[in-house]
């Protein structure tokens, strides 16, 4: 327990250090841009890891919450003239309500059936976003006004990086706090054995709903910020392949590891950029790396490496 708390503090310290140093070692704003995108994905992945990693409930439709966050922000700011922060909060409320409404019936399902249901939910959301052309601009997407915080708009990549870095750190801090609270133990317990968790007094359905809503809120926040940062949003960001990418980031980094989610998001966001110069081979390399890591390090990067380090 004590060792674990130290590891948590050490991890948060290391994360802060990396986030602080990163902008000074990255050669130009192009890489800063990649870091910002990685940070936004990492926020969504930290939330998704609470659901998949800790509670053991797969979601193959999580990009839907990311997409709804992005589109609610886009529509309310561009169409209705709402202040971005208010639109972002509205997106959180809407996503939270949607997640809460579907959580009970869907999270009764297990394994592949749950995968199917979340996948279906995600695809339905993506199709609605693509088809409601008057509201969303359809498959071609829609422009999003810049973010404004109390009259101040982040002027460039550096300011955006600061915002994302702070939010990412807070997201990780909240996740780690939750993991070691009685709620976090209850999630890990129901992951291992639902009947034993319930017998110990854990309201399994309630905890599943809770973590599902939380993970949707993380994705919503990341989506809203992404919309403002990118200035443009398409339904593809809510689609199946995007959902798969989020799950892949979590699993690649390591299940039930908050820092693993961050590492997975960073790697999978940066890889395509690195391979972009060999455009033809980009997808091949991505697929091969995914398979390779899962075959040789099935527990994911961070837990596998931590284990190696511990054995030494």
């Amino acid at each position: 327990m004590i060792r674990r708390r130290e590891a948590r503090r050490g991890g948060l310290g290391a994360l802060a250090a990396v986030l602080l140093v990163l902008p000074f070692v990255l050669p130009n704003t192009y890489y800063l841009n990649v870091a910002i995108l990685a940070g936004l994905n990492a926020i969504a992945c930290i939330g998704l890891n609470l659901l998949i990693g800790y509670a053991g409930q797969i979601s193959l439709g999580h990009a839907a919450f990311f997409g709804i966050g992005a589109y609610v922000s886009a529509i309310l700011t561009a169409g209705q003239g709402w202040p971005p922060v208010l639109a972002l909060l509205a997106a959180l409320v809407l996503n939270g309500a949607l997640a809460f409404a579907v959580a009970r019936p869907i999270l009764r399902l297990r394994g592949h059936y749950l995968a199917m249901a979340t996948l279906g939910l995600g695809i339905i959301v993506a199709i609605v976003l693509a088809q409601e052309v008057r509201l969303t601009g359809g498959p071609d997407g829609m422009p999003v006004p810049p973010l404004v915080l109390l009259g101040w708009s982040p002027p460039g990549e550096a300011a955006w990086y600061g915002i994302v870095a702070v939010l990412l750190w807070i997201a990780a801090w909240l996740s780690l706090n939750l993991a070691r609270s009685p709620i976090g133990r209850a999630l890990a317990a129901l992951n291992a054995s639902e009947i034993a968790a319930a017998t110990a007094g854990v309201d399994v359905a309630r905890h599943k709903s809770l973590v599902f809503v939380l993970s949707a809120l993380y994705a919503s926040l990341a989506g809203s910020l992404f919309a403002h940062y990118a200035g443009f949003i398409t339904p593809a960001k809510a689609g199946f392949l995007q959902s798969v990418e989020l799950v892949t980031m979590v699993v690649l980094g390591g299940m039930a590891s908050t820092f693993g989610a961050v590492v997975g998001a960073a790697i999978l966001t940066a890889l395509p950029q690195i391979f972009a110069t060999f455009h033809e081979y980009e997808t091949i390399a991505l697929g091969a790396i995914l398979m390779g890591i899962m075959i040789f390090l099935p527990r994911g990067l961070v837990p596998s490496l931590a284990r190696l380090a511990g054995r030494r």
């Binding site: 133990r185 317990a189 054995s193 034993a196 017998t199 007094g201 039930a256």
Partner: peptide, 19 residues
């Protein structure tokens, strides 16, 4: 036995204290 294998022995008991 339906134990929570990935947790420590003490944490298993702490889950029992959940309520």
């Amino acid at each position: 036995p339906q134990i929570f294998a990935a947790m420590s022995v003490a944490e298993n008991v702490m889950v029992g204290r959940h309520l």
